[in-house]
Lab assay of single mutants.
Amino acid sequence: MATGGRRGAAAAPLLVAVAALLLGAAGHLYPGEVCPGMDIRNNLTRLHELENCSVIEGHLQILLMFKTRPEDFRDLSFPKLIMITDYLLLFRVYGLESLKDLFPNLTVIRGSRLFFNYALVIFEMVHLKELGLYNLMNITRGSVRIEKNNELCYLATIDWSRILDSVEDNYIVLNKDDNEECGDICPGTAKGKTNCPATVINGQFVERCWTHSHCQKVCPTICKSHGCTAEGLCCHSECLGNCSQPDDPTKCVACRNFYLDGRCVETCPPPYYHFQDWRCVNFSFCQDLHHKCKNSRRQGCHQYVIHNNKCIPECPSGYTMNSSNLLCTPCLGPCPKVCHLLEGEKTIDSVTSAQELRGCTVINGSLIINIRGGNNLAAELEANLGLIEEISGYLKIRRSYALVSLSFFRKLRLIRGETLEIGNYSFYALDNQNLRQLWDWSKHNLTITQGKLFFHYNPKLCLSEIHKMEEVSGTKGRQERNDIALKTNGDQASCENELLKFSYIRTSFDKI
């Protein structure tokens, strides 16, 4: 039985969820670079991206490699990797027998973001014989899940209580170790020597080791999670996991709180800001991140802002960003909400898709409305799209047979046209069989910064309504002859009103 693990408890099935942008060198404390989270699957090609990484700022997932063999891993080693800020997950990587050479110096898994409450997941690794993470000293947050690894031993010899604050939620089941077939031998045991430290858990006094050649490092209890030197002297209180010299914040392997210019500090002093819960960055760093993602459509890219001495992905609820200094300031009234469309555009074809934009005031991208039916549609669209004030790209209304009016965009005031449909149009209306009105132009103002209007096959939309939009939106004169079809717009509506004058002759039985 794995020490510190839980057996036999019912657990939810383990679901495996399925960018080499360097964020800056980590400095003297770390020998390499800070790398983003990685999802490495199918083959070993991307694994080489770990070569210079000291910190993975995010998670590391290595999974679904069915053609790899043990010899493929023999020359692979990433000794610079010290810390993973989120979680480490391995799933069905064939041929991998140990992690001792792959990650010989991995010391800390912070667990800032977890995989279903777990910071370390080893699942269905069919050839893994031992973990071998002999320098792993601290899992700051989260638990361990090690399950269905039929060859995995050296679990009962690990004292997880020396690595985690609590072992109650560890789930370590259905491994070879369960069948008591392992016969784990710690260093020196074969020669009758006791080389590794022994600890007591559940009444068992057991030597602690990761492999037959690597003991588990056990520091004096007084050192807590700070770690200790090879001689057993406690590291500085700002260290986490390990250090090369005692009581020196510049000799830590990793930091308990924050890293700044080669030393570990309790908090980031001005003019620095907390970033990702582990390091200090200056304003320029946060500003660069903001600008890199301002026009990016890459998933996970955030326009970072500053709030409460932190550089964070977005302002919290009730705050909006001051564009001059990136500071989050309290909103006066309802907060603006910028919604970034991942692929640059979004099609609204149902109430469900409209709900995804609920509360958005600025759309960074283009909207395509293609709704053919739905219950209580006008009210639903207004509830979900009615706060949109600005669209950076274009607005396209296409084959939306259920629409009679666009009044559900009740606050839309600006279409920038930074991206144009077919390279020309910022407003595009095609084949809307029941569209009769755009907006009530006596109450609604709309500016279209650039781009043209396109109207074709809107049989109940009168040309007068379209011409009014040209005047109000500032697009009059931009359109070419064929942009607004004269014969297919309003051709099934009563669009022309003329005053009919009647004269009559009164007659009676005795007068003409």
Rank of each mutant, 00 (worst) to 15 (best):
30 Y>N: 07
32 G>L: 12
32 G>E: 09
33 E>H: 09
36 P>I: 06
36 P>A: 11
39 D>A: 12
39 D>E: 15
41 R>K: 02
43 N>P: 02
43 N>A: 06
43 N>L: 05
44 L>H: 08
46 R>C: 15
48 H>R: 03
49 E>T: 14
50 L>Q: 01
50 L>Y: 05
50 L>F: 05
50 L>R: 02
53 C>L: 00
54 S>G: 01
56 I>D: 00
56 I>N: 00
57 E>L: 04
58 G>L: 00
59 H>W: 04
59 H>Y: 08
59 H>A: 09
61 Q>I: 08
62 I>K: 00
62 I>T: 00
62 I>M: 06
63 L>T: 08
65 M>L: 07
68 T>V: 06
70 P>S: 04
70 P>L: 11
71 E>N: 11
72 D>G: 06
75 D>K: 04
75 D>V: 14
77 S>W: 08
81 L>I: 00
83 M>Q: 07
83 M>Y: 03
89 L>S: 02
89 L>P: 00
91 F>E: 02
94 Y>N: 08
95 G>T: 01
95 G>H: 14
97 E>D: 04
98 S>T: 10
98 S>D: 02
99 L>W: 01
100 K>M: 09
102 L>H: 00
103 F>S: 00
104 P>D: 00
105 N>W: 02
107 T>H: 10
109 I>Y: 00
110 R>L: 09
110 R>M: 11
110 R>N: 03
114 L>M: 05
114 L>V: 08
114 L>Q: 10
117 N>H: 07
117 N>T: 03
117 N>A: 09
117 N>D: 02
121 V>N: 01
124 E>S: 09
128 L>G: 01
128 L>R: 01
130 E>G: 05
130 E>H: 12
131 L>M: 02
135 N>W: 02
135 N>F: 02
136 L>F: 04
139 I>S: 01
140 T>P: 07
141 R>N: 15
143 S>A: 11
145 R>D: 03
145 R>N: 11
146 I>V: 10
146 I>Q: 03
146 I>M: 08
147 E>H: 07
149 N>V: 03
149 N>W: 01
150 N>I: 12
150 N>F: 04
152 L>Y: 01
153 C>H: 04
156 A>G: 11
157 T>D: 12
162 R>W: 14
163 I>E: 01
164 L>E: 04
166 S>I: 10
166 S>G: 07
166 S>V: 12
167 V>H: 08
168 E>R: 11
171 Y>M: 14
174 L>V: 15
175 N>R: 09
177 D>G: 15
179 N>H: 12
179 N>K: 15
180 E>G: 06
180 E>M: 11
183 G>Y: 11
184 D>M: 14
184 D>W: 15
186 C>R: 02
186 C>W: 02
187 P>F: 11
187 P>C: 03
189 T>L: 09
189 T>C: 12
197 P>W: 05
197 P>E: 06
197 P>R: 13
197 P>S: 12
198 A>S: 08
198 A>G: 05
198 A>D: 11
200 V>K: 03
201 I>E: 12
203 G>M: 10
205 F>G: 12
205 F>R: 02
209 C>A: 08
211 T>H: 09
211 T>F: 09
212 H>Y: 13
218 V>E: 10
219 C>Q: 01
220 P>L: 06
224 K>Q: 07
225 S>L: 08
226 H>K: 07
235 C>V: 00
237 S>G: 08
238 E>Q: 13
238 E>L: 04
238 E>C: 02
239 C>M: 00
241 G>F: 03
242 N>A: 10
242 N>Y: 11
243 C>N: 00
244 S>F: 14
244 S>I: 14
244 S>Q: 08
248 D>C: 02
248 D>A: 05
249 P>Q: 08
251 K>R: 12
251 K>A: 00
252 C>D: 00
253 V>P: 01
256 R>V: 11
257 N>G: 03
258 F>G: 02
261 D>C: 03
263 R>M: 10
263 R>N: 08
264 C>P: 01
264 C>R: 00
265 V>F: 04
265 V>K: 04
265 V>W: 09
270 P>F: 07
276 Q>V: 10
279 R>N: 05
280 C>G: 01
282 N>R: 15
285 F>C: 04
287 Q>I: 12
287 Q>S: 14
295 N>P: 03
296 S>E: 14
296 S>L: 09
298 R>E: 06
299 Q>L: 06
299 Q>Y: 03
300 G>S: 09
300 G>F: 05
302 H>D: 07
304 Y>H: 03
306 I>C: 03
306 I>Q: 04
306 I>V: 11
307 H>M: 13
307 H>E: 05
307 H>V: 05
308 N>I: 06
309 N>Q: 07
309 N>L: 04
310 K>W: 14
315 C>R: 00
322 N>A: 12
323 S>E: 14
323 S>K: 05
324 S>N: 09
325 N>R: 10
325 N>Q: 11
327 L>K: 15
328 C>V: 03
328 C>E: 01
328 C>L: 02
328 C>G: 02
329 T>M: 10
329 T>Q: 15
330 P>S: 09
333 G>D: 12
333 G>F: 04
334 P>R: 14
335 C>F: 05
